[in-house]
Design a protein around this nucleic acid. Sequence first.
DNA 1: CCTCTATGGCGAA
DNA 2: TCGCCCTAGAGGC
Length: 268
Amino acid sequence: MPEGHTLHRLARLHQRRYAGAAVAVSSPQGRFAAAASAVDGQVLRRASAWGKHLFHHYIGGSTVHVHLGLYGSFTEWARPPDEAMPAPVGQVRMRMVGAEYGTDLRGPTVCELVDEAQVADVVAKLGPDPLRADADPSWAWTRIAKSRRPIGALLMDQTVIAGVGNVYRSELLFRHRINPFRPGQKIRDAEFDAAWTDLVALMKIGLRRGKIIVVRPEHDDGAPSYRPGRPRTYVYRRAGEPCRVCGTVIRTAELEGRNLFWCETCQT
DNA sequence: CCTCTATGGCGAA
DNA sequence: TCGCCCTAGAGGC
């Protein structure tokens, strides 16, 4: 699901599957048809991600820029031995076919052909990405430390930190006992440093496992949550359920147009 | 089967 | 602030 870890995982997968060889690119739905023909048959050089943005860099300079939005997704399929391709299901905006695998993109907010300058424009609007080795957290700290906006809003702002979405926002603030409505300028330096370090570690777990897992073993008591299996979150979508740490009923409110979750006892 | 909700972000009003 | 994009899983009946 599309927070930053998902896009980095896709970049890694697409590079492994398709880089170094010609890729057949098409648009069964048609909305990406003209652009698809420009890269159809070109060799993919590499795939990369910055925050929630995914880039397919083709040799020659053409790049496909994808943003999944709320419900965009890639579905991978193995190529059948008889050369027949599976019929597209639903609105397939872009289909990529390599030697052994194909993948279908459905429901993205953005799927467009861009040049190197446009890639730079997209990236220039994004804050540091915790999953990138070159991330500079001091840029984010400068923005947060001088802002009166609530930290719960700043974390959702992709120009402050790129890749954090609605789950990591609530969960990170819970783990660091920070109330989401506290203004950025009331966050202490040491709190930010600890939260950033933790965020990098959490998103690396998300990248490796393909899902957001933030609950420490000592808090994993098997209590009912909205998802089956072991608990993975402390507060996200747990409104009305007891806090895993103190038992207080988890609260919810809308912040930046998205549902926020927190424990008013643990987070100050 | 139907209805609801969603991990996002853009552009129109 | 709202509609859109138009997918996909969960839950109700």
